[in-house]
Design a protein around this nucleic acid. Structure first.
Lengths: 338, 338
DNA sequence: CTGTTAGCGCTTTCAA
DNA sequence: TTGAAAGCGCTAACAG
């Protein structure tokens, strides 16, 4: 690193290091002409202050960490984009850590983050995390933590998530308004609270529009694609064949697609399908398929905004718990790049 | 930050700071019993060395920057994953910066990276970048740069990219081996070198298998989806209806899908389609559709590996230009999460 | 084997 | 309005 530093600037200008430092941060205690001289030389010499020296001295790194289970998933990718956007706006840098859905990695990362490397952390838990001591440790070190999407109930911290109830409601409403009379709901692992809430929204949607709730139209799917396929097929072969399907996750919508293909049913003419999705797969089901998109980008921005509000200590010490962003109904064009 | 530091450890143990420092880095000049005492107390007090102090002192941050045009694109997301994996293995941290395809942002980021914040940079150019002075500045500051995917010919630096010629060849070969006799090729903006190379691969593939090359089977598509759709439809309605299509980008494969749907052609029974893709859209075309996937993850790992090799100064100062990773033919199962 | 010392480059009192 | 000086926490000569 052959970089110029304050000392060199100071020597060149016959000023003290401290004066140069102050001038560069536009301190009011420096005369305008001096500032000008300093600015000019700094630009000329392409001076870049050493961030680590500054961090060491100020105990602030202007860096945050984003810890997520994976990135090869449009949801998290968009969230990162939201976070990065806000971060750069505020002059922060973003470190990224992937847990790969491994609790052990999450813990190791959390431990390493105790070093003061970052001023704050935005985190989405990996699926299997139960014990959250490693996160409490972070908070004890005064490193603010903001959860998003996959939150933990056991920790007091701001949480940014989608309003799954509302999302389920909107999806159901959409199908009913589109003329469906037998709306099925495909769920996944009911142990997840999101599934639960989406189903609540589904039921409330039916109720709101005076549709009967039929337990046979709710299929609890699991992780075995084969089994899911069979269950969905059975549903379509039964006397309760749905004319609308609300799939809680996109892979289930894909299964519906395959079932319909096998049975010679057309989408969306015979069966309308709506699904949560941040992928583009869905656009193939129909050129104008409607999806429920988690507002990933907005969630990222929101999480970052909340974190920075804490970091800049705006004296709002209200632990604003649970910000719920509404899901968005989206008609997607098929826009994809290579 | 209430963190413990070396001084506190030293006091507690009646040792000097430097001894503790050395012990923690497992220096050979410290006795085993002393090391043990130090380790134990460090663990007990949950000591985490301040990375910024260390960076300041050593002029190395063990941090790299990844600069990419966007992240909401499976290719770059996977690349990040590859980079992060290698980085964590080597004990490095990864800062992420998005240019949003804006040259101005790319330049600003490059400028800020001159501060010594990172030891090296992995970068994929944004589409419009012509002038690469900002990157030369980085190199002049002795910050190694590794390109991946979107490389610049104007700069001497390692470049990791996919072998587009080979990819085009493989795709064509696959269709021919699957029994296709009239393989069409859908290209995009021939100004891009990747399109050019893929087409070369296509032509060489035909030649290799003694298939005639028919200019009518090559459609140069543009950015207007409507127009592309019409051109593809015309091709299928002509007397040269293809039984195999090699789409250079996925969105063109999608258009083929729509055209086939309209014309009542089945995929893959009547027409086989193969496409470049790192998205999962393709899996819908057929449960077992074959795609040509850019080896994004591997490219990320490769780029990171090359970068770290430089950083760790293995005295291999061979500027290993242009590492070309082969594209991979993939039969994809439809694996998607919410 | 361990300690002393002198910084890394910057910020921030405290003086002038 | 400017300067001198004391560190932030850690590392690396150089001594012992």
């Amino acid at each position: 690193m052959n970089s110029v530093n304050l000392k060199q600037l100071a020597q060149e200008l016959n000023l003290s290091v401290s004066t140069v430092s102050r001038a560069l941060r536009d301190s009011w205690e420096i005369s305008t002409p001096t500032k000008q001289r300093v600015f000019d030389l700094a630009k000329k010499m392409n001076f870049q202050p050493n961030p680590y020296a500054s961090s060491l001295r100020k105990h602030r790194s202007r860096t945050i960490a984003v810890v997520i289970p994976e990135v090869a998933n449009n949801f998290f990718a968009l969230a990162i984009k939201g976070i990065e956007t806000v971060a750069r706006e505020k002059g922060y840098h973003v470190l990224i850590y992937l847990t790969n859905e491994e609790v052990a990695e999450e813990m190791a990362i959390a431990a390493s983050l105790q070093s003061g490397r970052v001023d704050g952390v935005i985190l989405s838990l990996c699926g299997s995390t139960q014990d959250t001591r490693h996160l409490l440790d972070l908070q004890q070190r005064n490193i603010p933590l903001v959860f998003f999407d996959r939150v933990s109930d056991g920790i007091t911290a701001p949480k940014v998530m989608t309003n799954d109830h509302e999302s389920g409601f909107i999806a159901t409403e959409h199908l009913i308004k589109a003329g469906c009379r037998r709306v099925a709901h495909l769920t996944i692992s009911m142990s997840l609270s999101i599934s639960h809430k989406r189903q609540q929204g589904y039921e409330d949607g039916l109720r709101r529009y005076d549709q009967p709730w039929d337990p046979d139209l709710v299929i609890h799917c699991g992780s075995d694609e084969e089994v899911n396929y069979r269950m969905i097929k059975e549903l379509f072969l039964s006397d309760k064949r749905p004319d609308g399907v609300f799939a809680s996750v996109e892979k289930l919508a894909v299964q519906v697609y395959h079932v319909c293909r096998e049975l010679g049913l057309r989408i969306p003419e015979d069966v309308k399908v709506i699904s949560f999705s941040n992928l583009v797969t869905a656009s193939l089901l129909s050129p104008s398929l409607t999806t429920i998109a988690q507002p990933a980008y907005d969630m990222g921005k929101e999480a970052a905004t909340i974190l920075f509000r804490r970091l800049e200590k705006k004296y709002i010490v209200v632990p604003e718990d649970r910000v719920m962003l509404p899901a968005k109904l989206e008609v997607r064009a098929s826009t994809m790049s290579s």
